[in-house]
Nucleic acid binder design. Structure first.
Length: 568
DNA sequence: GAGAAGATGAGAGGGTCC
DNA sequence: GGACCCTCTCATCTTCTC
């Protein structure tokens, strides 16, 4: 049920709104000649602004002043005109203000007083009060809020008459109403501006789309469902022939977010031998979605999944949540695990929103809002009305890492979330890399760029492929520490070399590494997505962004490795 | 000062309706 | 086919806390 104000202020706002709506027309219509000047050449523009609610004459004037080509300036001018027409100094507003002191209003006060039979109005009691208290009670009985009366008494002094006090209170109310009025007008203007901008945005979008069609179609069509070149237990229907330049050695495997800005995947593919990306959503491998694109030169026949098959639904992954899961939350899979997590304040707001609906489902609006937050932040139900973000160890499980993979060793909770949010989904990657098992029974040498917490290495290890040599390049000290810790704990027999920055990995260093290892069998990595991810609200600059431009280092290093290995 | 917590949209694709 | 709405997204920046 909606709550309405009880102090009468709503009525006041409605009255003012009625006055306001009529004013711009009356004021602007003074320029009657303007309407005829809007010639046929700009009739569409006139219709456009008239459609937004501006008077035709005002539109014509604004077009004359700003020119047809500058629609934003026209809008500004129209908004300014409307604001001036409704300013408190204008005669129209004075009229509106004077209404507040009209006889009708006074009648209301009288009615209130005469009709009052409360104890407050009892003559006997009033007689017993001090002069100040009597004034206060009288004004309150007249309908003024107590706190405002107190302020008025303070400002007007103890000896002020009732008339002086009512003058002060009326003036305060008028001022407040004017504020509300201007706020409303501002809102209305903002609404118009938003509407205008939205329309322009769509226009630009449409134009861009046609421009693109004219030039070349740089759109990447994401498959729906996003199953890549095939899933376990499904018949492979995809056949591909790699360009000659793409054929290994070494094999390479590149990963990034699927939902990149337009043109990004085309550019990546262009640099990586024109190989078609394989777009896969990890929800087909686990209980959480993770839409990623992979470009690789691996065979795609005879892949097999990691065993045991991980939980495929939320309830399989977190059975204890089933008890608390509301029937109206029909999620079976979680959304993409990201680097940030929900705040305690949010989960508190959810709890409070659901309290009071013990015996029935909350209203649809509440359900909708709560579900929106649950999906956005990947919340699960851990108690009555208690939604909670995933714990880091739960995310480790969802992503296919061993329990406590990121825990301890000086790694903070925030660093764990960040590192996990940036990593591979191990089961998905392992499915693609599984074809290497037959080829490298005695072990594999891996150049792991942007290695993070070692998703690729964990996948190879879980596939049973021995890690002979691993050169891991990762800028985050925390991630390097996590990976090295896993390497030591999992009793790896091979060599691990870690390097802190891909930009330090030049041709000389690569030559040195290749000569000591006899070459790399696999170059794997997912370059930073910071400037590509849809979650980035500040610098989604695509492949030219500060972080994501490191893709070109992946390309550079891969080419250098190929060149050096061909030479030797 | 470092780490944690909290607040902050926009862009792109897909679905639905007309 | 276009308009509109909904959903989803490997994040970033500021403020708070210790």
């Amino acid at each position: 049920m909606a709550n309405y104000g009880t102090d009468g202020s709503d009525d006041l706002d409605w009255d003012l709104e009625d006055v306001v709506v009529t004013e711009p027309v009356a004021t602007v219509s003074c320029n009657g000649e303007a309407s005829s000047s809007a010639g046929p050449s700009n009739s569409n523009l006139v219709s456009h602004f008239v459609g937004m609610g501006f008077p035709r004459e005002a539109v014509a004037k604004a077009i004359r002043e700003n020119g047809e080509g500058n629609s934003e300036a026209i809008l500004e001018s129209l908004l300014t005109q409307a604001a001036l027409a409704e300013s408190p100094d204008s005669p129209e507003c004075e009229h509106a203000c004077s209404d507040l002191f009209s006889s009708e209003s006074a009648d209301d006060f009288i009615y209130d007083l005469s009709d009052s039979d409360s104890d407050w109005a009892s003559e006997e009691k009033v007689d017993n009060l001090s002069e100040k208290d009597r004034t206060l009670k009288l004004l309150e009985t007249m309908g003024y809020p107590l706190d405002e009366v107190a302020i008025a008494m303070d400002r007007c002094g103890p000896n002020a008459s009732i008339e002086e006090m009512t003058d002060f209170l009326c003036a305060a109310q008028v001022a407040r109403s004017a504020d509300a009025f201007f706020y409303d007008r501002e809102e209305e203007q903002n609404k118009k501006r938003r509407h205008f901008e939205e329309e322009n945005r769509w226009k630009r979008k449409k134009e861009k789309r046609f421009e693109r069609i004219d030039e070349c179609d740089d759109t990447t069509h994401l498959p729906n469902p996003m199953v890549g070149f095939g899933l376990p237990d499904t018949r492979l229907v995809v056949k591909r022939t790699l360009p000659e330049a793409a054929v290994g050695p070494p094999y390479f495997y590149y990963e990034n977010v699927a939902l990149a800005p337009r043109g990004v995947w085309n550019t990546i593919a262009r640099f990586l031998y024109e190989i078609e990306p394989e777009f896969v959503d990890s929800k087909f491998f686990s209980a959480a979605a993770r839409k990623r694109g992979y470009i690789h030169n691996l065979p795609i026949n005879n892949r097999f999944p990691l065993k045991p098959i991980p939980p495929q639904t939320i309830h399989e992954a977190f059975p204890s949540t089933k008890r608390w899961w509301p029937a109206w939350d029909r999620r079976t899979k979680l959304n993409c695990v990201q680097t940030a997590t929900a705040s305690a304040k949010l989960t508190e707001r959810i709890r409070k929103a659901l309290e009071g609906w013990e015996d029935s489902d909350p209203p649809l609006k509440v359900q909708h809002d709560v579900l929106h937050e649950c999906k956005k932040w990947n919340l699960v139900w851990v108690g009555k009305n208690k939604a909670a973000p995933l714990e880091p160890d739960e995310i480790e499980m969802l992503l296919g890492f061993p329990k406590n993979h990121t825990r301890g060793g000086g790694i903070s909770r925030t660093e764990r979330y960040r590192a996990l949010g940036n990593s591979f989904q191990v089961d998905t990657v392992a499915y693609h890399l599984s074809v290497l098992k037959e080829m490298f029974p005695n072990g594999i040498s891996v150049l792991s760029l942007f290695s993070g917490i070692g998703g690729a290495e964990v996948a190879l290890d879980r596939l049973g492929i021995p890690l002979k040599n691993v050169v891991a390049v990762e800028i985050s000290e925390a991630s390097r520490s996590i990976f090295r810790s896993w390497w030591e704990q999992s009793n790896q027999k091979g060599n691990l070399i870690d390097i802190s920055d891909v930009q330090k990995l030049d041709a000389d260093k690569l030559e040195q590494l290749i000569s000591s290892f006899g070459g790399f069998d696999l170059v794997v990595g997912g370059s930073p997505c910071n400037n590509i991810s849809g979650s980035n609200r500040v610098s989604r600059d695509g492949l030219e962004g500060k972080h994501s431009s490191l893709f070109y280092d992946y390309f550079r290093i891969l080419n250098q490795v190929k060149a050096i290995m061909t030479k030797t």
